[in-house]
Computed example of a mutant assay.
Amino acid sequence: MLLGVVRFTPAVELVMALVLIVRLRVAYHSDWGAAVYSGVFHAISAFNNAGFGLLPDSAVQWAEDPWMSVPLMLSVMIGGLGFPVWWELLRHWRRPYARWTVHATITIWGSVVLWVAGTVLFAAFEWDNKSTLGPMGTGGKILAATFQSVVARTAGFNSVDIGALRRESLLLLDGLMFIGGGSAGTAGGVKVATFAIPGFVIWAELRGEPTVRVLNRRLSPANMRQALTVALLATGMVVAATGALMVLTPFRLDVVLFEVISAFATVGMSTGITCGHPRCGAGHPRRHDVPRPHRADHAGRRPGAAQPTSTLRGPGGEGPRWLGTTSPSSGWAGSARPSPCARSRRGDACSASTPTRPW
């Protein structure tokens, strides 16, 4: 199996990189060196569900470009399903009448349900939001909603401004990030099978069945104990970290919970509040904060909360630009470069001295 992984991984990354390279060269007029570097980097980052990007706005400028978004989504899906599932699919392709294992069945169908449900709900919540999907066409909205649903488990790219999402959308992404991808894959989270097993246990208990059966197969007590242990430990860690940050920071519950789950599941998405978090969970100067001008929910602060003195300000004293936008030809939009807090991808543990690089 190890040799198969070594062969499978570079093959997928190479195919996706070639598509990205050609698109960057043809549509975005990048020189060959930059196109090759960016294409290979993003293909590897997507397959490994890393979420690192070379642009300050992650994948926002590709939100309506299927030739960029679809390869990234496919890479995330392939890596996130898990290598055992792909070996199962290969075995089934060679022997069409062979039955799928319980693990493969739960992972595949669970992932499909999460992808579809996430897309539908995200589109419904953000369809008319002028700061996210609102300005896009119908096709762009569907593509961006699908992209965000897929990468939330747990790639960390973003094609919309995470800081501008509505609260119901943040809650949806919380669930997708917490569940994550398949076991023995490149995704994080508690894993699809681990999330599904407690559901089968609850269903069997409601029906009064003495044993838990999945697809006409009896689920062993060891598997149930392991799944319940992982799920409860994960929930406890998230609750504890969220409670600690609620005490130490002035931010609202919805954005704090989002940041905690994103970190726990190794997603890397951020609403843009990370620069205001206390270092090592202590020493937050909330009693000596300077009042901050109101910004519509982007800061995610509780009503009446003040702004930390470490938050970056623009040349004119205005608040930070939460998500700068760029184009292949124009570079940075506006007169000032966006704050490091603007980045909603990985690497968001920034400080006032961290530079932002316009790749």
Rank of each mutant, 00 (worst) to 15 (best):
P308M: 09
L55N: 05
I21E: 11
H277K: 15
L54G: 00
P291L: 12
F178W: 03
F264C: 05
G208L: 04
W359L: 14
G182Q: 06
V255T: 14
P291T: 01
P84N: 08
S339W: 11
H298V: 09
V26A: 13
L228K: 03
F125I: 09
V112Q: 03
I179T: 07
G140W: 06
N223T: 10
R346S: 14
L248E: 11
M269W: 00
S220Q: 12
M73P: 09
S131D: 07
Y37T: 07
R225K: 05
A187V: 06
L72Q: 14
T107Q: 02
Q148N: 10
L89A: 06
V260T: 07
V12W: 04
A282F: 15
G276Q: 00
E13C: 08
W127R: 14
L81V: 10
G175K: 02
T235I: 10
V102D: 01
Q61N: 07
R23N: 12
C280K: 12
V192N: 00
D289Q: 03
A63S: 05
T326I: 15
A231V: 12
M1P: 00
N48S: 13
R225H: 03
L20K: 11
N49P: 07
L312N: 09
A305Q: 01
E259S: 12
G39T: 04
G140S: 06
V116Y: 04
G236P: 00
T309P: 00
S30L: 15
V26Y: 14
R207H: 09
M1S: 12
E318L: 09
R167C: 01
A336N: 12
L171R: 06
I179Y: 11
L206F: 02
M136C: 04
L232K: 08
F125N: 01
G51Q: 07
R91G: 12
L165W: 05
L133R: 07
Q61C: 06
A241H: 00
P320T: 10
R167W: 12
A244Q: 04
V260E: 05
M224Q: 13
G175P: 13
I202V: 15
S339I: 12
P340A: 06
A17L: 05
H298P: 01
G324Y: 08
V40P: 00
V160H: 00
L24R: 05
C341N: 09
